[in-house]
Each structure stands twice: as C-alpha cells, then as structure tokens.
Design a binder for these strands. Structure first.
Lengths: 338, 338
DNA sequence: CGGAAAACTGAAAACGTTTTCAGTTTTTCT
DNA sequence: AGAAAAACTGAAAACGTTTTCAGTTTTCCG
C-alpha cells in the first residue's frame, strides 16, 4: 500500500497525494477531500523511512539521560515523551552511566540516528563552545542551571530551576525556624553537577543567617541513588556529630535519610528537621510527609521539547527558561529542640 | 558523505561498500580492510533512513506501556531500553492511558513507524486471535500472566510472573501468621487486568486457610496510581471495618495504604500487617520497610527483548518465560493482636 | 592443464517518498 | 474581453541505501 496506489485509486498524481499529506496549500479543497477519502479507504499509512529519505531529515529527537533510576527524572522523561508525540516527532532515549561523557554519547547518537535535536537530561553540562560545535544539531539542557562551567548563560538553550536560589530558599526555611546545625545531603560534587550549585545555595543561606559552615555536616553520597544516600547518611550518623536539621538535595535521598535516622532511633521532625527539593510522587506518602520544594517536572519536560522544536524550526535562537518550585509543606519541619 | 564517496575514495563499487557494512561474506579480506579504513577516514556513517528504505524494515521495536507513572514499570522499561540498545535495535515508547486500547494503539504504532516487533508492558491483554492478527508483527507481553482471556497459553510470547501463585503466596504469609481478617488493595478489576489474577490468588489463599471471603474487605482503587490507592484506603477506613492485615497488589499502593492507616492513628505492623508485590527501590526505605515479593524487573525487561528478538529472527515460535519473585522481609508483618 | 565450482565484484534496478520545474487551468483586474 | 497573476497539477529527478543478476576472477580437482 504505497502512495502510488492511493494516486491511482483517487485519480490524481502522486505529487498531489504528497501535497495533501504535507498540508501544502496548493491543492484544491475538493481534490484534498477526495484524496483524504482514498487514504482512509485504503488504510494507507506513509512509509516513514521513505519520507525521511526524501526530506533528508528524521523528525526525531534524542534524549540523553543520566541517572535514569531517579523518579524525578523519570517524570520529566515521560512528559518529554508525551510532548514529542504531540508534535508528531519521535524520540529516542539514551541512558548513560555516571562516568560516560554525555556530549560524546549525544554526538554519536545524533550521527547514527540522524537526529534533529537533543535534550540533555539530569546530568552536568560543562563543555567549551568548540566541543559543542561537534554536535551539529540544536539541543536543550533540562534540569540544571547553566550559569556555571565554561559557557555563558546564553550560549545554549536550557529549561531549569535556579538551583542556587531554590537551595538557598530551602535552607533559609530551616534557619528561619531557628536551626543552626544544618547538615546537607549531596550527591557527588566532583563533576560540576547540580550538587555544586545547590551546595552553594546551602553555604550562602547559612552565611546570611550568620552560621559558619561546618564541613563535618556535609554528607556526600557517591551518587544520587537512594541506596548510596542511605549508606552515606548511615556512616555520617556513626560519627556522632551534632545537628538538628538536614537539607537533602533530592527527595529520594531525603527519604533514605529519614530511614537512616529512624534506624538509629532519631525521629523526624522531633530530633531532626528535613527539607528536600524535587517533589516526587511518593514523597507525599512517607511518614512523616516530606517537606519539599516541588519542581514542575511535567512542565520542564514539555517546555524542553517546545524550546527545542522552536530552535530547530529556527523560530528563535537559544532560549533560557527558568521555572519556579513550589513549597509543599509536609511534616518534616520543626523548631530545633532546646 | 554518502556510500558513493566511500566507494570513490576506496576505489571499489558501492555494492562492495554495502556488503562490508552488512557483513556479507562475499568480500575479500584485503578489500574489506581497505573499505573499513576508508569509512574510518571519511567518518562515514550510514544513513539509516536510506538503509531502512532499501531493506524495507527498521530494526526498531515499540513498547506500549500503560500506567507509566508506576515505578515498577519504569524499572522494566529502562531494562528494556538497555537491552534493545545492546542488540543494536532502536526503541520507541508509547504511553497509553487507562481507557485506550493497547492493541489498536500498538497496531497504529507499528504501521506508522514500520516496527519489527512490539512489547506490551503493564496492562491487560485480552484479545482474540483475529484481533491480534491485525498487528502483523511479533510481540511479547511483559508483566502479566497470560493464562486468562480468550487466548491459549501458547498463542503468544510472554515474560511474566505467576500473578495468581505469587498473590496466593503473599496472602498465605499473612494467614500463616494467624491473620483472619485480611483486606486486599486492588487497582480496578473491571478490565481483566493483573488485579483480577492477584485477586483470585487472594481469594484462594483465604479459602485454603478456611477463611470466608468478606466483600467488605476489598479496597478497589480507581487505578494503580498511588494517589488513587490512598484515597481508596482512606474511604475504606472511614467505614470502620474490622481487619488486621492488608495485601496490596503493588508496592506503591501499599505505601499509600501505610500512610492512610497512619493518618487515622493505626500503626503498621502493630495494628495492621501489610504485604505487597513489586519490590520497587523506595519500598526499602519506608518506615517500616515494606515486606514485599520482589519481581525481577531488570530480568523481565531484558528477557522480554531477548524473546522478542528471537521470535523476530524466527529462531523460535512463541515462548513463555515465567520468572519468580523473592520475598524481601521488611517490618510490616506481625501476628494479629489478640 | 582444463574445466567446474567457488569467490568475488559491479551496473542497474528497486525501495517510497519529496521536490523541482514546467505546464495548465482559474481568478482577478483593467 | 484580454492580460497578468494566482492557483493548481503532474512528470521526472532526486534522496542513499540494498538487492538482484550477470559477469569476472580465483581456486580446486582430476
């Protein structure tokens, strides 16, 4: 069942069929209707390989995602998938591990699949303009502030929250309650990742509250993985440091922290307050409910696709879209004990 | 940079290049080496659209997934993606909602994307052989026992756990502890879904323990969504029925149940024991730790792809692969109070 | 050493679209 | 009414591969 059959069936040329398929204006309404009817009746579906070949492009975008186990990233990912489908594009996902180079992985993906664009999700992104030029397609960074690294803010497109400011806000919530000894639960910071910015927000929030940073209160997990967060918190607790609150960089990590605290007989929020950033679904159902700054994951995904598609269509150059979090008050906050 | 350039550069015909690319035996080792070198030097990457058009196929499989928010399904999905990549195939994911017809969605996906095969993930699958024939490509059902509905067991391929037996086992764990009044937390059962089989396992486990089914102890959520599970449990609790344990069909739902119980002042496991099926990551970190039958999600995904690819290559007909769960003992089980 | 089989190679025809360009209608304007 | 512009249409040439088929070498065997 090819375009030829449809042409024969409806008595017009294949060119006209193609035009109908591609919404060209140059076709009479009457003819269009006839063709549409023929397509319907023959159950014709265009062959996308042939179409791509003819057009010399693919209508496919790639998503390079680091740390795919993370529930928050999953949520963004699914929103991306939905939006991509809505725009009649296709999407290929590519998971990478913590020690893989996202730019290199993305570049090879682009070449082999002939992608039109790329979304980088949930990792770091710290490359020189020269390195980026090797990609050859538009791309959008999603979920990380791009004010760091070797690039200017406007060098590429991005959909993000202000990691620094949000972390500041989270920690300020704790200091406002009177907390002085606030620990921070981080993923690894040795790679210019999201951790670094949120950590800065933590530091400055302490400073502006007149609190001196205590390096012993930094809990650095090996990754953003929930298991690693648990282990890190566990061994932190063994050290017996004095603290009254924890700022967790991610919901999942915070959940692990609550568990670790509970294991050694510490209660949240009575013995330790906790606040996180993310707003994953399950964090509404922990005991106590996690207090967290909810990132608009669906919006992030949707907007990432919108921005990318706009750049692809050259309707705009690079574009920065900052989204805001919303505080979801749970039960993990209390004043520090006297 | 096309195959033509490579041919010119290496002084052979494009046919030979194509043969090298496709590992045809009919090419001298010396020539092959020369061609490979040329490919390398010119950074040639085959155009997959043209290749697909020439071959009249795509090396792409589709995954139709229902209930994409579910952490367990996500885990399977990611395993599928990994394995698909390993086999040098591509994957397109298609999310569907609760009232969409997976077969119809799958069929349209196959036609528009020219897929070689399909994996159905996380929904029901109850179609007649005639309906299935409309698909036109091999497929594998993943995550649901296929012993129900209008098809014989061997009519199609499947990777699954024995939902009936595992549910039976879970509930038996409760009855063995002495529980008599056991509630069950289900997603909707009105669609021959996974709920139905696990519900049967529940019923039969009760029966074999000499317990009469009490319809008032059936908690039926509108979906498998964690929010719906919470609401359903909440309104169940309002009815004030007497019970000492809950069997939850899924981890996420169980977590919601614990929260709902806690909200009305009931403690798990003291006032109510709870067991679930799934083994999602976060359930290790709830308080108390969820006791659950862990489904091998990674294996399920990996095997689903393996099976599908085998069927595609016609190395085997349909194939049923039953996997086993493993009990992960948490802290949600206790003997019923006197 | 001659002949047949095996190994290798290339020209040309697919594959199903889009796109270009030339041509034919129809509409619009004076 | 006639000319110019706009709207519409189709033949044929791309697009970059794979595949078929016919041919040319090389190898093997008696």
């Amino acid at each position: 069942m090819t375009i030829k059959d449809v042409a024969k069936y409806s008595g017009v040329s294949i060119t006209t069929i193609s035009r109908v398929l591609n919404n060209h204006p140059d076709v009479r309404e009457e003819v269009r209707a006839k063709v549409l009817k023929a397509i319907e009746e023959l159950h014709y579906v265009p062959n996308s390989s042939a179409r791509d070949l003819g057009k010399m492009q693919t209508d496919t975008i790639g998503v390079v995602v680091r740390g795919v186990g993370n529930p928050f990233l999953n949520s963004v990912l699914h929103a991306i998938e939905k939006e991509v489908g809505r725009a009649d594009y296709s999407m290929v996902m590519h998971q990478i591990g913590s020690n893989e180079d996202e730019l290199a992985e993305g570049a090879s993906l682009v070449r082999s699949k002939r992608l039109k664009g790329l979304i980088f999700l949930g990792g770091r992104f710290d490359y020189t303009p020269e390195q980026i030029a090797t990609l050859g397609v538009p791309f959008v960074c999603c979920t990380y502030t791009n004010t760091f690294g070797s690039l200017k803010k406007t060098a590429y497109s991005s959909v993000y929250i202000d990691d620094y400011a949000e972390a500041f806000r989270a920690v300020k919530t704790l200091t406002d309650l009177g907390h002085k000894k606030i620990a921070v639960l981080l993923g690894t910071t040795d790679d210019h990742s999201i951790s670094e910015l949120r950590f800065k927000g933590y530091c400055d929030a302490l400073k502006s509250a007149g609190i001196v940073l205590d390096k012993d209160l930094i809990i650095e997990a090996k990754s953003f993985n929930i298991d690693d967060a648990f282990k890190a918190t566990e061994s932190f607790l063994k050290k017996g440091k004095d603290f009254t609150a924890i700022f967790s960089i991610a919901d999942a990590m915070g959940i692990a922290a609550i568990k670790a605290l509970h294991t050694v007989g510490l209660n949240v929020p009575d013995d330790c307050s906790l606040i996180a950033i993310d707003g994953i679904q399950v964090s509404k159902y922990t005991i106590p409910t996690l207090t967290t700054l909810v990132q608009p994951s669906k919006q992030m995904g949707t907007h990432a696709v919108e921005v990318l598609l706009n750049v692809i269509k050259e309707e705009c150059g690079s574009c920065q879209l900052k989204l805001e979090t919303a505080l979801r008050e749970g039960g993990t906050l209390a004043k520090p004990k006297a």
